[in-house]
Design a protein around this nucleic acid. Structure first.
Lengths: 141, 141
DNA sequence: CAAAATTAAATTGTGTACAATGTAATTATA
DNA sequence: TATAATTACATTGTACACAATTTAATTTTG
């Protein structure tokens, strides 16, 4: 058997496995805030943008409406966001933070720190990794 | 707003996004072999091991029986593997390659190469990334 | 040795992901 | 300006992914 099909020689497998393991870690941390990882990254964009439509949100998160629609409905049912159609263009769904959604930001302040503790990389290594990942991502557009 | 909750300052988000984008790329390449990405990495382990049980397969792939059972049934229905209980310990499900499963290895020889072309990293950068990812993974055990 | 504990898979329920398609609103064009 | 093309979002169908539970087989222990 040639080595090129061995799992240990793949670059993509550790990427896939690592992503899953870290999302799993997030789950254990986010549970107490009644958030999933996907809901959490949606909220991160909301805290930055205050107002955004599904299309632009999807562009930021590399997700499409098929994934986002149910997630956004869930976040609305939890009263973290509000969903209303734009007046200017009724195709656009305007996403807005609620009071509860704004308050959530304070509550999760320590999440990035907690996650950081689970990843045993030095500051320099983390930065290296960050740059390599964005180099791949930027190429895919 | 503090910067610690900005999406662009997270290390985990590009990991998550990158993983998804690459799996998507795999999908387009693996389609012609009637394989999904998950089925493909299961087959990679099978080609290496010839025979393995679900538990050990899951340890290799960071997947549990809840995920693997339906994937393995699918691979069996496509005649790539055979599933039989072990004689020595009936709790163990013995996974074996079929003739068709062995032949599949030749057909996908070029997949790693095709994927490589989608990732614009130098050999050195790819190795760096590989090491950083396994450093995180090894810590999670 | 019999009951308890452990182990391996399977099952169930929830939540993504994404391709493909559908629908309604808006924009471009003949 | 009516129709065609495009756009934004929702829906449908398929395939993971994982926590929690169940079931059956094996091992440990009192």
């Amino acid at each position: 058997m040639k080595d090129n099909l061995k799992l240990e020689n793949q670059l993509c497998f550790p990427l896939y496995a690592c992503s899953k393991e870290i999302v799993k870690k997030y789950k254990s941390i986010l549970d107490k805030f009644d958030l999933t990882y996907t809901q959490y990254i949606v909220m991160m964009v909301m805290w930055e943008e205050k107002e955004i439509n599904v299309k632009n949100l999807g562009d930021r998160l590399y997700l499409d409406s098929g994934t986002l629609t149910p997630v956004l409905k869930k976040l609305e049912s939890k009263n973290f966001i509000k969903r209303t159609r734009s007046d200017l263009d009724e195709r656009n769904l305007k996403l807005l933070l609620t009071e509860k959604g704004i308050k959530l930001m304070d509550k999760v302040q320590n999440v990035p720190n907690e996650i950081g503790k689970c990843i045993n990389l030095s500051k320099d290594e983390a930065l290296q990794l960050y740059k390599l990942l964005y180099k791949i991502l930027d190429n895919k557009e």
